[in-house]
Each structure stands twice: as structure tokens, then as C-alpha cells.
Design a protein around this nucleic acid. Structure first.
Lengths: 342, 342
DNA sequence: TTGAAAGCGCTAACAA
DNA sequence: TTGTTAGCGCTTTCAA
């Protein structure tokens, strides 16, 4: 019943395998008569070409890999949608690999992609020193596009948001609102976004001529628990901050939880600004001010770069930087005077 | 540099391809001497077996498909983690396919999986009449496990939560709290969870001897916008409800947003209970009472059934039903008397 | 314990 | 316009 081969189709249609193959691949120079007979045979038998065999010949396939660190992170979810829509429009099947920020898993998935002769791979690498695992894949002829995070000693096409600018804007916003003791809960410093967002904060302080209190700069790891812990740490200081900038969405949820548990009112007692928007950020308590990254566009651009790279492997590498946007809601206190109902 | 073949390894090591293959597959009866030479050759050359070729011979592979309708839905995200962890522990690589509830995409991905000779596929089908697209895949020898949603005329292993019980508990909870006009925002009725959850509500009304006001039963489609619209509809009634049960997480976020926009206080003016928990449900405004499905366990069980099916294709089909759990927070008004701060 | 050879399903020369 | 044939990289008889 299942797994009909080209040979059987050929016999059924009374032609050679090559002819079936030609029909399959829409070759020119096939008589209508034969084409129809073959089509009918394929339909009748429920023929489905064996991809392994095809790939073995063609040394390539119509799947593309998308390797992300954490499916629970809304930014990556949006990115996935962007990649999928763009890929789907070009007849590429996206296979999603979730590494859980585990380099071993990433290596395993890269291996799979290489072995599958994927048409390309979009990667948000687990670490900045992932070059040695990425390089062989590229050398095997598989185009790679990085998203969000750079890798040392591994130049490649990359799409990312302007983290420095986003963090700088957010921090400036807080300074302008008059907060005096602004705490920074930074993310993993071995990752580009972690470093850049912290840098953005410093730039804002610099520009506004404010001295940084290093006791108020905490470095976390982009996970919820980390935001939770560091927020509690902040608020238990002798002189707690009056505002907190948190470097990603997961950590800001942690911060929110910590503040709720401590019974601290936001933004009256401490203002909060996060990085990465979430569709329900406006439904949180209070509605959360965030720096919104264009996740969907990041994904689309990644596919665009991938296809471009596949076509012209020797072009110089591209760096696409998209602009984030500060979405002001209640948690930063911007609406305190007009909208203060507590 | 890349794409070393078994032939090259064999030449390098001075043995035959067959021998290299044996080393690769950990056959018995190989001299240590040869084994070591081959190993060294593989390392030196950076050999990676070509999966397409392997699969072409073996008619199977070490990837398993996980086909989900919506990566933005937290339930499925948790499920993915459960599947991945279980699969990873058994050396299976999970490829995730996001159908966006689009039957065409689902068909495309199923085709890919079949062509890839996947070791199995875990599917949350887009529609209850997906039987005709699922059947051929199974007939091709690929085990299929359904999760969450049943398919008519397609018996298969299935893992799901006890939707009836979950919805019944939630509704009973609202009734016990004394609400008189309870609205139901139900989900897609062509899907099992949609039907079952609505049934659960009716059961609760029955058991408690309450007459259902059919004007208060609205049927949506499990999407955020749907929850939003129907909630606005409810609240604009001449006699609006004093409590709302919403049949999934996305729709409850929509409901929340609608109520916020209308300036309606929860739970004072209307109580709210959702289905499907989210990690940040406690940080919403107000903290949301939900029926929590064990997404992670659903995923793990699915993999378990899949492997069992792969081993013994002819066993009768299993139906695994896991129990949900009502997580009481503020939105249902249970804490109104003790915790009323507004 | 190892090697030679056939063949998995497909495509692409080359011939006709 | 179609068929014959070789071979992609691997595994697995069968023979040695």
C-alpha cells in the first residue's frame, strides 16, 4: 500500500523510471500523452518520492533548520513565525530545533541539519564561542544566518536588533522621568544582547551626565529566576532603587513576581521597564513598559539573507540591524500623574 | 574539507567500506586493531555519516516529528518541552512543525515526515476530520500519536487532559462562590477540547441544579481575538454576567483585555476563570484563576506511547487521560473577602 | 574477522 | 521525446 517506488510507477505507466523522474521534475520535452499516463499512475498508486533518495542524489533538500535557544521566550516565538511565513512562501519546510541553551543539543541539531543537507540554517547560537561547531556546517555547504547573537571568530550574515539603542532609550526614559537610583538587571554578559543592552544603559547615564552606582548593576542570565532573585536583592538593599531596567522579558516577569511577593507597588515605590515586548504585557499588573523588538521582521530578514547567501555564497557578509521601539505603559510611571488611581 | 564519505575513511584506514560501516554500527567481531585504525581515520577526516544514504538503506531515521498548531500557545510550548526531554533521553531528534492550524501546512509537514521516514510523529491535529491525511502516514509504517484532539474515523494512541472534568470543576467552583449569571466562552466546537470543555460546564450546571441561560453561552475559536470579541458581547448585554468561564488561555487573555478596556473590575464586577495555565498567570491583573493542564506530562506520555507503538505496532490503541488542576487565584473572587484591597 | 558486491530510490548523462 | 545506465553513500548478505 505505502511506499510506492518510482519503479512501480514506471511499470504501471509502461514507461521508464527516467521518464517518471522527468515528469516529477517538470522537465521539458515530454509528450502530453506520456505525462498524463505517468500522472495517472502516480495518483493511482499514491506515489510519494522518497526524499532520502532524492537528497542522496541532489546533495540538498527543501528543509531549512531554525535553531532557537528557548521556545518559551516570546521573542523567539515571534521570530519563528516570521521565519516560517517567509520560508513557507518559498516552498521551504522549516524544522524547529529547541536547544534549551544547551550547546550539546545545539551540536546535535547542527549535525542533523548537516546530515540532512538542509537548504540552510538560521541559528540563535547558544554561546558566543560556538564558532567551531558552526564552521564545519558552513564548510559543508550549508548557508548559516545568525540572529540576535554574534559569534566570535565566525563572521556570518546576521540579523539583530539595535540593543544598545533600545536599552539607551529605555534608560533615558527613566532618567527623564526623574528617577534617581536606577538599577540595572543585566543579562548574560557572554552573549551579545547581554553586553549591548548593558552598554546602552551606560551610554544613557553618560549622555545624561549621571554617575553609575555600581551596586545597582546586577548581572543575571536572562532567565526568570534570575530576574526574580536579583530584584529581591535590589529591594533588600539599604538604599533600594526607585526604578529598575530589566534586560529581557523572562527576567522582567521574574522581577514582577518578586515585587508582587514583596508587596511593593509599581511604579509608585519602584518603576519597572523591561526589554522584549509580549502580547499580554499590557495585561500584566501593572501594564509593563518595554522595549519591543521586531521579532517577526528579524525572522523574515533572516530567511531573506539565507536565500541570498544560498544563491551567491561569495558575497560579503551582511549585518542587518533593526530598530526596537519603546512601548510606554504604566509600570515606568510615565502616567503616574494623569492615571494614578491607587 | 567537508562531506567525507565512508569510502575515503576506508581508504585512509586501509580497510574496506564494510569494515568502516561495522565499526560505525558497533558490530561485534572486529579486531581492536582495526577498530582503532578506523576510529582514528574517522576523527582525522572529520567523518560524518550521510543520513540520507543511511536512511535510504534503513528505511527509518532517528528524527521524530512534533506537529503543533500554534507555537504561541503556552500549553503547546510546555508540551514541546515534555516531548523534547523524553525524546532526547532516547537519542531521538525532535523536529517541530508549526501548522498555524492550517490543514495545508499540516499536510505538507506530514508529507515531509513520511518522506523522512521519521521514527514517529506526535500530532495535535488541525481538525477532527484529518483522518485521510493521517492514515497514509501510518500505513507507510510511521507510528502516530495524537495529543489533545481526537480525529474521527482514525483510531490511534492518544494523550489528552480530562477536559470535561477540568471545565466542570471550574464551573462548579464559580457556582459555589455564589455567582448567578455565569457566561461560558467556549472554544472551537469541531475540536475535542472545545466540545468537552463546554460539556463539562453543562455537567456542572446540571449537577448543581442550575438552569443554563443559553444567551450566556458564546462559542469562539480559541484565539485571543475571539475571547476579546465575545467578552465585549457578553458585557454589553442588558443583563451582563457576573462571572465568565473562558475555554482556553488565549481567549482568556482576550477576555482580560476586553474587560480592562471597558474599565470593568475583576472580580468585583465580573469574575473570570480561564482554561490552561501560564507561568505568568499570577502576574496578570488580577492574578488569573485557571484550569491547569499538565502539558509537560502530556508530552512525555506521547513519546512513551510512540515508542511503545513503534515496538509493538499491533497492540490495541491506548488512551491516556491526565487530570487537570484548578489553580485558584484572585480573578475568580475566591479571595475577595480576605484579600480585597480595591 | 574481513572484503566484494549488490542494491536502497532517485537523477542525469548519454544514446537512440 | 524516451530509454539505458551509472552512481549518490551506505548497509548487508555471502564468501573467504
Amino acid at each position: 500500500m505505502a511506499n510506492v517506488t518510482i519503479k512501480e510507477v514506471a511499470e504501471y505507466a509502461g514507461v521508464s523510471q527516467a521518464t517518471v523522474s522527468r515528469v516529477l521534475n517538470h522537465h521539458a520535452y515530454i509528450s502530453d500523452d506520456v505525462r498524463q499516463r505517468v500522472q495517472q499512475a502516480m495518483d493511482a498508486l499514491g506515489y510519494q518520492p522518497n526524499r532520502s533518495a532524492r537528497r542522496l542524489r541532489a546533495h540538498s533538500s527543501d528543509i531549512m533548520g531554525l535553531i532557537i535557544p528557548d521556545i518559551q521566550n516570546h521573542l523567539f516565538q515571534t521570530l519563528v513565525r516570521g521565519v516560517e511565513d517567509a520560508a513557507y512562501a518559498r516552498q521551504l519546510n522549516v524544522v524547529l530545533c529547541n536547544t534549551d541553551d544547551n550547546p550539546d543539543k545545539q551540536t546535535a541539531y547542527l549535525r542533523v541539519m548537516q546530515a540532512e543537507r538542509a537548504a540552510g540554517v538560521v541559528v540563535i547560537p547558544t554561546r558566543s564561542n560556538d564558532g567551531p561547531v558552526l564552521a564545519p556546517v558552513r564548510e559543508a555547504g550549508i548557508p548559516i544566518v545568525l540572529v540576535d547573537r554574534e559569534v566570535v571568530n565566525f563572521e556570518a550574515d546576521i540579523v539583530k536588533a539595535d540593543n544598545v539603542r533600545g536599552a539607551c532609550e529605555a534608560t533615558t526614559h527613566l532618567i527623564r522621568l526623574g528617577y534617581q537610583r536606577i538599577a540595572i538587571i543585566a543579562g548574560t554578559q557572554s552573549l551579545t544582547p547581554g553586553r549591548e543592552r548593558l552598554r546602552g544603559c551606560y551610554e544613557a547615564f553618560d549622555e545624561m551626565g549621571i554617575r553609575v552606582d555600581s551596586a545597582l548593576v546586577k548581572v543575571g542570565n536572562f532567565r526568570l529566576e534570575s530576574g526574580y532573585e536579583l530584584t529581591r536583592e535590589c529591594m533588600s538593599m539599604a538604599e533600594p532603587p526607585d526604578a529598575i531596567f530589566v534586560a529581557n522579558n523572562l527576567m522582567s516577569l521574574g522581577a514582577l513576581r518578586a515585587l508582587h511577593e514583596l508587596g511593593i507597588r509599581i511604579p509608585e515605590q519602584v518603576a519597572l521597564v523591561g526589554f522584549d515586548d509580549m502580547p499580554w504585557a499590557g495585561d500584566l499588573n501593572p501594564p509593563l513598559t518595554t522595549v519591543s523588538q521586531p521579532g517577526y521582521e528579524l525572522g523574515q530578514q533572516a530567511v531573506r539573507l539565507l536565500l541570498q547567501r544560498a544563491e551567491s555564497p561569495d558575497l560579503p557578509y551582511n549585518k542587518v540591524i533593526l530598530q526596537p521601539r519603546l512601548v510606554v505603559r504604566r509600570s515606568c510611571g510615565a502616567y503616574l500623574s494623569v492615571n494614578h488611581r491607587d
